[in-house]
Amino acid sequence: MTQISRRDFLKLTRNGILYLSGLLATGGLLRFLSYAPTAEQKTEFDLGSADQYPLGSRTSIPEIPALLIHAESGFTALSLTCTHLGCTLEPNETGFACPCHNSAFDSDGNVTHGPAVKPLQVLRIEITDDRNIKVFTA
């Protein structure tokens, strides 16, 4: 029979409305909770005069965290954030080691021991006209 009784129809409507409002409320709640304030995360770091970092120096900048390398070819900044899950690397004789899950990197930032797969990020550097070094993390 294709006809439905009035009672069935009302029941169906009622249930439909109930489920629908439940669904809408859940969706709304999830959206409410998923707002991420666009916090001003610092992405630009002023490292002061380039002359403080003599040729051949490797200086750790903990607030980024990064390593500023001054080689023949110029300045490079190597991020010290582990590419596995984000812990901060600690320098050792051969390069860097991660305290969290034992990843290791050589002094150029290449992976020498897993679980990390990606090499360390090389950060963008800018040297201003008055020889100030700026490092950008984004």
């Binding site: 999830l30 909770l33 998923s34 707002y35 991420a36 304030p37 916090a39 995360q41």
Partner: peptide
């Protein structure tokens, strides 16, 4: 990413 925001609200 969605669950990450749910858990700690994005950010560091």
């Amino acid at each position: 990413d969605f669950f990450h925001r749910l858990a700690i609200g994005g950010g560091e």
